[in-house]
Design a protein around this nucleic acid. Sequence first.
DNA 1: TAGTGGTCTAGACCACTTA
DNA 2: AAGTGGTCTAGACCACTAG
Lengths: 260, 260
Amino acid sequence: MNKENNAPMQGNINGIDRQSYEPAYIQLVNILKQHVSSGIMRPGDRLPSESQLCRQYQVSPMTVRRAINILSDQGIVDTVQGRGTFVKPIKLIAATFHLNELQGIFDDRQTNVKILEVRIVSSDRRTAEKLGIAVRDRVIYIRRLLTRKKKPLLYHREYLIYDPLRPVVESELEVTSLKGLFEGEGGSDFKRGDLSIEATIINEEEAKILQTQIGSAAFCLEHIFYDFEDKPVSWGYFICPGDQLRFATTVGFRPEGVQD
Amino acid sequence: MNKENNAPMQGNINGIDRQSYEPAYIQLVNILKQHVSSGIMRPGDRLPSESQLCRQYQVSPMTVRRAINILSDQGIVDTVQGRGTFVKPIKLIAATFHLNELQGIFDDRQTNVKILEVRIVSSDRRTAEKLGIAVRDRVIYIRRLLTRKKKPLLYHREYLIYDPLRPVVESELEVTSLKGLFEGEGGSDFKRGDLSIEATIINEEEAKILQTQIGSAAFCLEHIFYDFEDKPVSWGYFICPGDQLRFATTVGFRPEGVQD
DNA sequence: TAGTGGTCTAGACCACTTA
DNA sequence: AAGTGGTCTAGACCACTAG
């Protein structure tokens, strides 16, 4: 992120600088973005054709193509075969929210994960359903609390399939495993994870642990992880007080040039 | 989405079918994905080198390159210059949530937008701050209610810069403008929009309008739109009862092949 | 030094849209 | 028929990593 910023946002408006460390296709992306964000090109307008861009910027068709593909991936233009490439209007509905806003939390040295409880329990109906097992089957139950600067931030409850043959417990129990879960540095031999976010209300137990008010707003981030045979291996959810977290994003063009 | 499914998930494991309508690079992407999702390739493993893949599947370097770029974009592999391409472990933190889960709402014919109120008001401190204007400056205040099957779904409050020179009112007032805001079909001559999602609690006014309980959980989706001069033109927020909405996503490999 | 990924060329052929 | 985007080739040169 913090590389040399001697030549930020290349692409002289006029043309492509072949001496630059920035690849030609990136420069072209930035030039075209600049045209859109500055209003030279408005939503609905057609871009110059690919062959025109080739001539105009003295690059090969593949390079133009690559630049346009990137703009298309970023939702800035629409390409229609036989008609052309068009600037897209901004759609609120195209917005995406990234969980990696939480990244900073784990990088912070003042963040701490405490295991509140680990024990083997008999699964209730909901847990059995989520994990695809029978009610009363044994599962490992873990409660964790993530704090930053001594302040409670996330309360996590998780149920793991109990498999004596593959004692996943040890690795899961590491204090860092929550970080590993998020950042995937641990083994993470999962095939996939299904996540969902809901709005919820802090209950009595959560209020006590998170040191907040009963009835205050919170996010609930639920997760189910599956192994390579598509069988669930764990189910759990994070509770995060609403005043500690906010998901933010931008549609269209960010004020700074940094968007990749 | 629902095109001919005669040959779903091409790429015979063995090689690339040149007769297929599916492009070679897509077939290669699917083959490599299959290797990862089936466990043949595990997180941390190195992919065959690009020249190896060229020989193995009888395609040109650019085609291999394109396939690998796609896998890299999708967060499935990491490429390191000089070392190789590696299968990435699953990261919870890489999850993204898409607002377009709301798409279905607007496609539904039983969805209806009602304008509850429009008037010109004097901006309070918060509104003035958000819109970058002076306190007491006049703004247009709009309240809308979006219902589906007669059931309240979203409550929207919005403040627009009042500019007599450019009467944005008429177009904004159309019943469909909420849909236009989301789907960008209207003019949408905005340069960008900043969004954020918070967890919140339904207050008395909202409870009455949304026909829910005071104190129940809800999402608050706030938005500020900027024109091409980077000046705010509108600020507002949607309130959506928590039991009406849930954001879901998958990290890793979705059960069906559909992910684009 | 050998192998890897990163970029780029200068074309080619195809499918599609529009007139 | 002309113009557009979509795909693909068969190389080339470079920067980086490793032994």
